[in-house]
Amino acid sequence: MTVSDVTGKEKTVDLEVIQGRLAALEQRLESLEEGQPEDKVALIIFSGDLDRVLAGFIIATGAVAVGQEVSMFFTFWGLNALKKKTVLSGKNLLERMMAVMSPNDSRSLPVSKMNYFGVGAKMLRSMMKNKNVSSLEEMIEMAREMGVKMLACEMSRDVLGISDEELIDGLEPAGVAAFLGESMTSRTNLFI
């Protein structure tokens, strides 16, 4: 094919070459778009400290509110935030010891600083109540209502000897790859 440029000079253009380049470009664009993070937030809740877990749930509920899809991956001490009770039957000696030394449920989580055998946590909860801030339990309920995906690390649950009946309902058992699947397509990733 021949085309004339602005000066009127004629040039020969190979249409096939252009088409080939265009196809290559489209393919690259497609692969780029595939790698784009989505409107998602992935949180790892590793800590079982009341203050840290609270921060996680505030970010989670806030993120859903502004239109993000949120997944929370609870692992190790973070699993304590999902406990509703402690059941000792069916546990071996070490698991029993672990259970006895761990918080019974989310209400008995310690704070990361100035806990003083739980007095600090009680103080923080009552100060939050005075300032009309939602409690952790309200936040968890809200997060579930809003569709926050909650994944419980199967390996650490098993290691710590926490049974399903000790945890709140509606959790999805998951492993590292499940979390990575969420995290690698998320815009924001936080380890708490």
Partner: peptide
């Protein structure tokens, strides 16, 4: 009114 972070945004949503 009277609600703290993140409730205003959550309720508004």
């Amino acid at each position: 009114r009277g609600l703290n972070c993140p409730m205003p945004v959550v309720k508004a949503r």
